[in-house]
């Protein structure tokens, strides 16, 4: 049986399907060759698009760092805050305009070192925002100093002989603080990451997604990890285990690193409770 001839369908007027969401005049972005931040940013934009929500009903907030540049590249309302302060700024937007879907796109240093307190309190309040953490295990922008996420023994510019400390288990921290949606993926698991971000945007309450990402310049270089080596680790040394016990999620690539969705529960969120108790709103 003969097959019909094939014809190419090119999206009209769109050279790349995300160009309506990107400030193209700022492209190429600052992220280095092999940096995973751009992949996670692409997953985030694709997820936003997939929700079908009007772009005017979104806002993106970032802190300082390479990943913190995200807010500067998205072509919707966005704000690039001071270091560590993306979450309080996002909280302000949410409380002033509760119908906004507020996304925080920032780094491990920004969200969990200088900004750690804001993270736990927004989670405790079940603030209805979506927090995406680009976890590259390092302060990328400032030259590779050890972060609160740097693996034990790993080398950084401030731990040249190996990191004597142990890193946070971020999903456990988020869960313990009260987050109602918690997931972890890597930038290589782009499809799962995208679906998870879409789900997190639609989730009512505090959502946290950790996305593992290579920083070949300031982490990889000191730890004998070329960009493709990092991706190979994400491929070979991870295992997907939804609903895993958050206590088991410490990252150690000598063992398998667990990915998946770990928490997805419903709880009244802060703007609803505030509206009910102080503004006389009724929950529908």
């Amino acid at each position: 049986m003969g097959k019909p001839a094939l014809k190419e369908v090119i999206p009209e007027s769109h050279p790349h399907p995300l160009e309506d969401l990107v400030r193209m005049d700022r492209i190429p972005h600052i992220w280095c060759s092999g940096c995973g931040t751009g992949s996670i940013f692409t997953a985030c934009l694709t997820a936003m698009k997939n929700t079908g929500i009007d772009y005017n009903d979104f806002a993106m907030v970032s802190g300082i760092g390479c990943s913190g540049r995200g807010a500067g590249y998205i072509n919707i309302d966005s704000f690039h805050t001071t270091h560590g302060r993306a979450i309080p700024f996002a909280t302000g937007i949410k409380m002033a305009k509760p119908e906004t879907n507020v996304i925080v796109f920032s780094g491990d240093g920004d969200l969990f070192a200088i900004g750690g307190n804001h993270f736990i309190h927004a989670a405790r309040r079940n603030m209805d925002i979506t927090v995406i953490c680009v976890n590259n295990f390092i302060y990328g922008m400032t030259g590779g100093q050890a972060a609160a996420t740097t693996p034990h023994n790993a080398r950084s510019s401030t731990t040249m002989g190996g990191n004597p400390e142990s890193p946070f288990n971020l999903p456990l921290l988020a869960y313990a603080a009260g987050a109602t949606y918690v997931a972890r993926w890597t930038m290589l698991h782009s499809r799962d990451l995208t679906d998870s971000i879409e789900e997190a945007i639609n989730h009512k309450g505090f959502s946290f997604i950790e996305a593992l990402s290579p920083c070949p310049i300031n982490y990889g270089r000191r730890n004998k990890e070329k960009p493709l080596d990092s991706l190979k680790l994400y491929h070979d040394r991870t295992i997907i285990k939804n609903n895993a016990d958050p206590g088991e999620l410490a990252i150690d690539f000598r063992k398998k690193v667990i990915l998946g969705k770990f928490v997805d529960v419903e709880k009244p969120c802060h703007d609803e409770e505030y509206g009910r108790m102080y503004l006389g709103e009724t929950n529908e």
């Binding site: 094939l6 190419e8 090119i10 790349h16 492209i27 190429p28 995973g36 751009g38 992949s39 782009s190």
Partner: peptide, 15 residues
């Protein structure tokens, strides 16, 4: 989805 640079994409060939 994987490309960090918005430098590659695919479209469908339909019959």
């Amino acid at each position: 989805l994987l490309c960090p640079e918005f430098a590659i994409f695919s479209t469908e060939l339909v019959a």
